[in-house]
């Protein structure tokens, strides 16, 4: 299974949308850089992310949340919060990494 990385805000680019459309059940979606905004509750993307959580794992990089002033309390339930060490573990855990640049 692939670990898909998304580093774009869903409000600016369609990287997240394409990633969700073209990723298999059981794969992982890793949000970093501006991609972390997609992890927040209350956005117009929250429903899509919640739906994705039904058959995929979604992860968010906490240092990128912190840098942007995003409160971890407002991260969508079910999204796993990891630091860079956790990022490394995930890359090792999944069979390959695919970046949605």
């Amino acid at each position: 299974m692939l670990l898909h990385t998304v580093n774009k805000s869903p409000f600016e680019k369609n990287a997240l949308e394409s990633c969700l459309n073209l990723s298999k059940a059981g794969s992982g979606v890793f949000l970093l850089e501006d991609g972390v905004y997609a992890a927040m509750k209350g956005t117009v993307w929250a429903d899509k992310v919640t739906t994705a959580l039904s058959d995929k794992k979604v992860y968010v990089l906490t240092p990128d949340l912190a840098a942007r002033g995003m409160n971890t309390d407002n991260v969508i339930d079910g999204i796993e919060m990891v630091d860079y060490a956790g990022f490394v573990d995930l890359v090792a855990e999944y069979s390959a990494t695919q970046a949605w640049l």
Binding site: L2, L22, K24, S27, A96, A99, L101
Partner: peptide
């Protein structure tokens, strides 16, 4: 396409 992608060892984006 989803299935093809998932079989890959290396993906260069």
């Amino acid at each position: 396409l989803t299935n093809i992608m998932d079989e890959q060892d290396v993906v260069l984006s």
